[in-house]
Amino acid sequence: MLMLGSSAFALAIPLIVLLITLVINARSFKDREKSSPFECGFDPSNSARLPFSTRFFLLAVIFMVFDIEIVLLLPVPLTSASIMTTNTLLGAGMFLFILIVGLLHEWKEGSLDWS
Rank of each mutant, 00 (worst) to 15 (best):
R49K: 11
I83Q: 12
F57N: 07
K108A: 13
I100F: 07
A48V: 04
T79E: 11
F63A: 13
R49N: 15
H105A: 13
V101K: 15
L73K: 08
L2Q: 13
C40S: 15
T88S: 12
E106Y: 09
I100R: 05
C40N: 14
I100C: 09
M3E: 13
R49W: 09
I24H: 10
L4S: 15
F66M: 09
L22F: 08
V23Q: 05
L74W: 02
C40R: 07
E106P: 00
T86S: 14
S111L: 00
P37H: 00
T21S: 09
L59N: 02
S47H: 04
P44G: 04
G41Q: 01
P77F: 04
V101H: 07
L19H: 02
F9V: 12
E106N: 10
L19V: 09
D113C: 01
D67Q: 14
I62G: 00
R32L: 13
L89V: 11
L74D: 03
L11G: 05
G41I: 00
S35C: 08
I100G: 01
I13F: 14
F97P: 01
E69M: 15
P37C: 05
P77L: 02
E39Q: 10
S82W: 11
M1T: 10
P51M: 04
S45I: 14
A48L: 03
F29H: 10
N87Q: 12
V17L: 14
V23D: 02
I62D: 02
F42K: 10
P51A: 03
T85Q: 08
F38A: 04
H105N: 15
L50F: 04
P51F: 02
F52A: 05
G91I: 03
K108F: 09
G5C: 14
E33Y: 07
L96N: 07
D31H: 02
S7T: 15
L2T: 08
P75E: 03
L18R: 04
V71Y: 02
I13Q: 12
N25R: 08
E33F: 06
S35M: 11
P75Y: 01
